[in-house]
Amino acid sequence: MTVHTTSRHDDDSDAELEAIISERRRLTGLAYRLLGSLAEAEDAVQETYTRWYAMSRRQQDAVESPGAWLTTVATRVCLDILGSARMRRERYVGEWLPEPLPGRTDWIGGRRGTEAAHAADPADRVTLDESVGMAFLVVLESMTPAQRVALILHDVFGYPFAEIARITGRTPAACRELASSARRRVRASLPPQAPAAHQARLVRDFKEAWDAQDVEALIGLLAPGATFTADGGGVVPAALRPIRGGEGIAHYLTGLAARASGGLTVLERTVNGRAGLVLEHEGTTVAVYAFDVADDRITRIWAVRNPGKLRPWTED
C-alpha cells in the first residue's frame, strides 16, 4: 500500500502560490485605472507575473512582501506602456476613449493603507466607484503618467507616499505634489457625482426619447453646453471631433438612428458602475454609451464604437 503524505513545505508552497495568484484581481484593477484599457491591463499583469516566475525560488524567497513587489513591477510596466501609448494615441484616428467595462466594478477593488485611510480631508480621496467611472478615466488621460500613478496609488489604493516614492523612484514630497496637482485637475474638471438612481432615471428618459426620435425631449434632457464624444478608432464610422451643444447632439443622434438599418436595439446597461446604454445590431454589441450628469441634465456622453474596445461586451 502506498501512503501519500503532504509535507509542511508543500503546504507552505501552496499557500504562497495562492497568495501570489490572489493579487491578480487587485493588480488588474490598478493597471486598468492607469491605462484605461482592460486589454492592456491584462497584458501588464501577465508581464508582471512572467517576471515573478522568471526568478529563481531563492530570489522569490528573498522578497519580503510579494504583493508589494508585484505592485511595484506592475506600476513600472504600466509606466512603460503609458510612455509608448502617448505616441500611439497621437496617431489615433479621432478621439481616444477609455475601454468601457460592463456591469458592476467591485471586482477591481483596492486596499486602503494607513495614511490614506486616516487622511485629514476625506475629500482628498477618490472612491472606488468614482475611480472607474468614465468621467474620471477621461480626466486621467489629461494627466502625466507620474500624476496618474501618484493619484491612483495614494487616493484609490491607499499607498503611503513613502512607498509610492520607492515604486516610482521619486521623493515622497514629489509624489505628494504630483497627487495634489492631479487632484486639483480632477476637481476642476468634474462636478460632484450625481446619485446613481438619478442618473439612471435620466438615462432611461434619454433612451425613451431617442427610441421615439423626439428631438425636443432629447434637447430638454441635455445641458445646453453638453458634449458628445465618440471613439471609432478609424475602424468604424464615428464623429471625429466632439459634438458640442445639446441641440446639435440631439439632431446628430436622431439622424444616426434614422440612418441605421433595421435591427438596431438600445438597451439600458451598467457601464463602469453607472447607468449607460448599449447599442446592439442584430444581437451584436456595436456601441457602448457612458453618461455624466449634473443639475438634472446630461452634460457628457461618451460613445465607444471601436470594436477592439468592446471585447468585454461581446464575449460570453
Rank of each mutant, 00 (worst) to 15 (best):
Q60M: 14
D61Q: 15
D61T: 12
A62F: 01
A62G: 05
V63D: 05
V63Q: 02
E64V: 14
P66D: 00
A68G: 01
A68P: 04
W69M: 00
L70V: 01
T71N: 02
T71L: 08
T72M: 00
V73M: 02
A74D: 00
V77K: 03
V77I: 03
C78K: 00
L79M: 10
L79A: 06
L79E: 11
D80S: 13
D80V: 10
I81P: 02
I81A: 11
G83F: 00
S84E: 13
R86E: 11
R88E: 12
E90H: 11
E90V: 09
V93R: 13
E99S: 10
E99C: 07
P100R: 06
L101W: 03
L101H: 02
P102F: 05
P102W: 06
G103Y: 05
G103H: 07
G103L: 07
T105H: 07
W107G: 15
W107V: 13
I108L: 15
I108V: 15
G109N: 13
G109W: 13
G109S: 15
G110F: 03
R112D: 15
G113P: 00
A116E: 11
A117C: 09
H118N: 15
A120E: 15
D121I: 04
P122N: 02
P122T: 00
V126W: 02
V126R: 05
T127A: 03
T127C: 05
L128M: 12
D129M: 10
D129Q: 13
D129W: 10
E130V: 12
S131E: 05
V132M: 09
V132T: 09
A135Y: 03
A135I: 02
L137I: 01
V138P: 07
V138W: 06
V138E: 12
M143A: 07
M143S: 00
T144E: 03
P145F: 02
Q147F: 02
Q147K: 07
R148G: 03
R148Y: 01
A150P: 06
A150R: 02
L151Y: 10
L153R: 08
H154C: 00
D155Q: 15
D155N: 14
P160G: 03
F161V: 08
A162N: 14
I164H: 01
I167S: 03
I167V: 09
T168S: 05
G169I: 06
R170A: 06
T171V: 04
T171C: 03
T171Y: 02
A173Y: 08
A173K: 12
A174L: 07
A174P: 05
A174C: 05
C175D: 07
R176T: 06
R176G: 09
R176A: 11
L178H: 04
A179H: 06
A179Q: 01
A179M: 01
S180A: 13
S181C: 09
R183E: 11
R184C: 10
R184S: 12
R185V: 13
R187E: 13
R187F: 11
A188E: 14
A188H: 10
L190N: 01
L190A: 01
P191R: 01
Q193I: 15
P195C: 04
